[in-house]
């Protein structure tokens, strides 16, 4: 069974078509790049997977089930902006996550925070942008989810933080889960991807193994992306 499956999935906002008849079958044990320029439908697709939006047509299934209470417990989602109450301390957020998510691994989270020397007594609002993003990533990746959806996880962080984030994603790899990284900053992350999906104007224009693409085209994924989406 697929971890995430879209069958003829469409979504419209009024008369605007955001997703147009998407067919996608995604298995576990993969780190997938969901790649497309702004407005290509990435966030709409994520929101449908999260059950935050309803399809206009077709269906999306998480582990064979329509998004709902049960599937939400299986998806760890890292939004592309700050989403945690900034008056809370890191310590309070750990407890908050542990209360909220049964699959939250406190030990793993504390270990990662310790490795980065992040002071748990600090309030979120006192942390630098890069540290805030790391805390958010640590909270997300410390869940034992079936699907991790990371929306622009490296936008706006320095190269050292980016390396840390990529290593965290790799070290957290499990053959039982699917990691989806949504981004348009491809060059920075392409070596960790094993599959890529290109979204263009609401359609899937390509879904392939990353190394096969490099072999066939003699280009890296970033180069290919620039070609497909040339303005």
């Amino acid at each position: 069974m697929y971890v995430l499956e879209c069958n003829n999935l469409s979504k419209s906002y009024g008369s605007k078509r955001a997703l147009e008849r998407i067919d996608l079958q995604l298995g576990s044990g993969r780190i997938l790049g969901l790649l497309g320029p702004n407005g290509s439908g990435k966030t709409t697709l994520i929101k449908l997977a999260e059950g935050l939006l309803q399809p206009t047509d077709g269906q999306i299934l998480i582990g064979g089930k329509v998004p709902g209470v049960e599937t939400k417990a299986q998806i760890a989602y890292l939004p592309d902006r700050e989403f945690l109450p900034d008056y809370m301390t890191v310590e309070q957020l750990l407890r908050y996550y542990a209360d909220f998510f049964q699959d939250f691994d406190m030990e793993r989270a504390e270990m990662m925070l310790k490795n980065l020397n992040i002071n748990k007594a600090q309030r979120m609002k006192k942390l630098s942008k890069g540290t805030k993003e790391k805390v958010q990533l640590i909270l997300t990746m410390s869940r034992d989810a079936k699907i991790y959806i990371l929306d622009e996880p490296i936008a706006g962080v320095d190269p050292a933080a980016r390396d840390y984030i990529l290593k965290t994603i790799i070290s957290n790899y499990s053959p039982d889960s699917l990691v989806i990284i949504c981004t348009h900053l491809i060059a920075d992350i392409e070596s960790v991807l094993d599959e890529v999906v290109f979204l263009k104007e609401g359609r899937v224009v390509l879904h392939r193994n990353a190394d096969e693409l490099r072999e066939e085209t003699g280009k890296n994924i970033d180069g290919l992306f620039r070609e497909v989406f040339r303005c």
């Binding site: 993969r30 290593k167 790799i170 960790v192 991807l193 094993d194």
Partner: peptide
């Protein structure tokens, strides 16, 4: 994989 920064697969 972590050392090289590549996908474990």
């Amino acid at each position: 994989a972590m050392d090289a920064g590549v996908n474990p697969n």
